[in-house]
Design a protein around this nucleic acid. Structure first.
Length: 879
DNA sequence: CCCATCCCCTAA
DNA sequence: TAAGTTAGGGGATGGG
């Protein structure tokens, strides 16, 4: 806080310094020399482009000092100079650094040109694939969405950029400012005209409407719909006369409004590529449209990588909310309609696909409807971003890791982890390897060398009462810290005196010798998280949101290092390190179980406190039994008697304290919750009725893991029935009512008619994700059957979509009887009631009720009767 | 009936 | 140049 205030004071007293938040970065050339450009926005809302001259590209090579002259001579066109430096190699514990060459080039593009040849002449090369803009930011201590303070120079290297403040500075430094600059958001959505009902293709189908939504307003408008023909209409509608004029106007508005964040729904896969291709097609026929959107004055640009499309608009962030929603929320479908309904409680307007052409050609009521439908779509995209605060987390991740926001939105955890490691390696005179190339990366799988994961304790199946749930706080990161597990502590050569040996066999130097770089980073992240959570307590609403996103980002990063170390394509892939982490984890949970069961054994409650048996000497003993555990958790059954929530908490905290005291810091077992009743079905499948205190009252909450209620590949009838059964059994202990409920549920679908009972029909829809191209499937799958059927009807599903389907009555294989629900409903096709009863309702319910004696018997009876012939009458039950 | 394989989705 | 990790249940299918 103190620092923050000073910064603001600084602005007022020193007008020559300039602060801005870094949105994006690239480089260009001035007089043949590379110049990095930082794009951002300042506190008062100006968009800024700061040119940073004189930063030089470089990489490292491990070689004898004598090689310097030879390399310099051989690549003199590219190499500006070579310095002999001391650096540590990336992996391993070393007492001393080795001699390396720091090779500085004239041009960043020179690095890929000479690196392969250089590699052949030296032992190894390092840091040869760090993008120039990232290299610059790392070396200057700057990062994505972080604030920079620049001292503008009188003499400017000016470029043709669109930002309204163009400065040049050789002195750019990071500044701590918590809040974000006032960012501008523009959501967009296009409507194309399907000709004769065919899927629109950019070569033939025109774009007829472009809808826009702004935050903040644009010329006091919240939305605007551009129309690609002449209309006279009031409201936020702009008649453009033609498609060409409309597209030109679109780019003009983007440049004028100058958004920092562009938003769309499925825009990376659809809208942007469509716009780009459509313009190419129009320009070929004589139109003149320049898709200039970037702050560098260049066009939008997209590139396909396998199934994903990457879109780039220089200087701005482009956000496709669809993939973000997929990552963030578990929904059965991610169509705009369903996402809006589930997440915003908003209705999407709709017009029938086949009638679009008629709506467009109409100039009255129907066109108005079409326009409002289009407007709604961009409004929804913007609402997702703002209401659900979709990018707050990503902004925090950018700030904490120093990675550019766009890279985080497009990519994964790898870049963030590498960014953090690179910065810390640099401070410690270590170099980073280049990213491993193609073939080598799958080595692990070919050679059968495997990374073993977490330990799952077999559950005590059936109904249990009084269960204390304990878990390890950030298990893997704390293991790495506790045992000093790191790339930089792995013993590769001579073995020092003090070492740590992992159960998996890996040997690492002790913290007493040297603290590993990764453990140091983790410690820093952990401390910052603690401090951030502390600050939240006194922050105002806006600050609190930023701080909350920050602490979440810190947590995500903490937990990313282990996964990264076991990722075969990582620059620092280390099976030794990853195995050490998991092996300590497995050892730990097993030790925890035996500590609780064989040493603590029981807890005594006396005078409102918990004691071990030894401490208490007398009093009623509560025996302990570990009934389940998965990786970092233990479920302890408190035997012998009923417990109040307070008592259970006392016992839980006591156990946690004893276990924690037996461990290396900062490993910590904590009390998580108290389960009044629980049912364990199998490993990773259970339900617990948790008792929680809120506002002094005890609340009951059903926590279900892995069972059908939380899975998206079962129909709603199943999930709802299973949920009700669990509630009856766990909350009320009414097993007989649960059986009755199942019977009624089965009865309710026996005469199912799609058109007569639409709500019931909807409950029988299953969904599954279409994960790869159809030809890659080795076996027939129901949802793929539907994808094929849809295709034959002119509807194209995309890889990544979740496909809804129902199972139709008839002969033949189940997979072949999967059908599109809309089609089945429209044609009123009969469903396979037997499938739903025998495969969707009975098995999940039986898994829960099977152990309840006669009740289980009743269910088995239901199943057996159905298997016999004459099924119709068998819905009746003989009592 | 058992078993292996493929596929999906979830827990951690 | 796409992508953090493994453990595990359970359905459909086909072969023995």
């Amino acid at each position: 806080m103190q620092r923050l205030k000073e910064t603001y004071k600084g602005i007022k007293s020193n007008l020559t310094m300039m602060n801005f938040q870094i949105l994006d970065a690239d480089y260009t050339y001035s007089e043949g020399k590379p110049v990095v450009r930082l794009y951002g926005r300042d506190e008062s809302g100006n968009s800024v482009c700061c040119s940073v001259p004189d930063f030089e590209p470089y990489f490292y090579a491990k070689a004898e000092p004598e090689m310097a002259g030879i390399l310099q001579e051989k690549f003199k066109e590219h190499i500006k100079r070579i310095e002999v430096v001391s650096r540590f190699e990336p992996v391993g514990y070393f007492k001393n650094p080795v001699s390396m060459l720091k090779i500085t080039l004239y041009d960043p593009k020179g690095v890929p040109v000479i690196r392969d040849d250089v590699r052949k002449m030296v032992d190894e090369i390092y840091e040869t694939d760090i993008l120039f803009r990232n290299r610059c930011m790392v070396d200057y201590g700057l990062g994505g969405m972080g604030w920079a303070s620049a001292e503008p120079e009188a003499e400017r290297v000016t470029f043709d950029v669109l930002s309204n403040l163009k400065i040049t500075s050789r002195k750019v430094e990071p500044v701590e400012i918590l809040r974000n600059a006032p960012l501008r958001h523009l959501a967009f959505d296009i409507e194309c005209l399907p000709l004769n009902g065919a899927m629109p293709a950019p070569e033939t189908s025109p774009i007829v409407l472009i809808s826009l939504a702004f935050s903040p307003d644009f010329e006091s408008k919240k939305t605007l719909v551009l129309v690609g023909k002449n209309v006279s209409m009031d409201g936020e509608v702009e008649s453009c006369g033609s498609e060409e004029a409309m597209l030109r106007r679109f780019f003009e508005i983007v440049r004028e409004y100058d958004p920092d964040i562009l938003v769309g729904y499925n825009s990376n896969s659809f809208d942007v590529p469509y716009i780009v291709e459509r313009i190419k097609a129009l320009n070929k026929k004589g139109a003149r449209i320049d898709p200039l959107m970037g702050r560098d004055g260049k066009p939008v640009y997209y590139k396909k990588f396998g199934n994903t499309t990457r879109v780039s608009v220089m200087g701005r962030i482009i956000v496709d909310v669809l993939p973000l929603l997929r990552k963030e929320f578990s929904l059965k479908q991610y169509t705009l309609r369903n996402s809006a309904k589930e997440l915003l409680g908003a209705e999407k307007l709709d017009i029938p696909f086949l009638e679009m052409e008629a709506y467009w050609k109409d100039n009255g009521e129907k066109l108005v409807k079409f326009i409002e439908y289009a407007r709604r779509d961009s409004e929804l995209a913007l609402l997702f971003l703002l209401k659900l605060r979709l990018i707050d987390k990503y902004i925090a991740l950018a700030r904490v890791s120093g990675t550019l926001l766009q890279d985080i939105l497009d990519g994964g955890q790898t870049q963030m982890v590498e960014n953090l490691i690179l910065r810390e390696y640099m401070k410690n005179n270590r170099v980073l390897p280049a990213r491993p190339t193609g073939e080598m990366s799958d080595e692990r799988f070919d050679e059968g060398e495997e990374l073993a994961g977490g330990e799952v304790l077999p559950p005590k199946k059936g109904l249990l009462e009084n269960i204390v749930i304990l878990d390890y706080k950030s298990l893997y990161p704390t293991i790495m810290m506790a045992h000093n597990l790191c790339y930089t502590t792995e013993v590769v050569g001579e073995r020092p005196d003090e070492v740590v040996k992992a159960p998996s066999g890996g040997v690492f130097v002790s913290r007493k010798v040297v603290k590993g770089i990764v453990p140091a980073i983790l410690e820093e992240l952990l401390n910052r998280r603690q401090a951030t959570r502390e600050k939240m307590k006194t922050a105002n609403e806006e600050e609190r949101r930023v701080l909350d996103a920050t602490q979440l980002a810190l947590k995500i990063l903490l937990n990313s290092f282990y996964g990264y170390s076991g990722y075969a394509r990582a620059r620092l892939y280390s099976l030794t390190l990853a195995s050490a982490v998991t092996s300590f984890g497995r050892e730990n949970i097993l030790k925890t179980k035996s500590l609780i069961e064989d040493e603590i054994k029981g807890i005594v409650l006396k005078d409102g406190a918990a004691f071990t048996k030894d401490e208490a000497k007398e009093g009623e003993n509560i025996a302990l039994s570990v009934v389940y555990g998965d990786t970092d958790s233990v479920f302890v059954n408190l035997l012998d008697r009923e417990m109040t929530l307070e008592e259970a908490e006392l016992v839980g905290r006591k156990i946690a304290k004893i276990v924690t005291s037996s461990l290396q810091k900062p490993m910590e077992l904590v009390f998580d919750s108290f389960g009044r009743r629980a049912i364990f079905i199998a490993k990773k499948r259970y339900a617990v009725l948790v008792w929680e205190k809120s506002d002094g009252k005890i609340r009951e909450k059903l926590r279900v893991k892995g069972m059908e209620t939380v899975r998206r590949d079962w129909c709603e009838l199943t999930t709802k029935t299973v949920e009700k059964v669990l509630e009856l059994v766990l909350k009320e202990g009414k097993v007989d009512e649960a059986v009755e409920l199942v019977k009624n549920t089965i009865d309710s679908i026996r005469d199912i008619d799609a058109q007569k009972h639409p709500e019931l029909f909807d409950k029988l829809i299953l969904t599954r994700q279409y994960t790869k191209k159809p030809e890659s499937y080795k076996s027939r799958q129901p949802h793929i059957t539907v994808v094929e059927k849809l295709k034959s009807r002119g509807i194209i599903a995309n890889v990544g979509d979740r496909i809804p389907f129902v199972i139709l009555a008839g002969n033949g294989l189940f997979v072949e009887r999967a059908e599109d629900p809309d089609f089945a409903r429209e044609k009123n096709l009969p469903l396979d009631v037997d499938y739903y009863v025998m495969k969707q309702i009975l098995p999940p319910v039986e898994r829960i009720l099977a152990d309840f004696g006669e009740h289980g018997e009743k269910l088995r009876a239901m199943r057996e009767k159905r298997t016999q012939k004459g099924q119709r009458s068998l819905f009746e039950f003989s009592e």
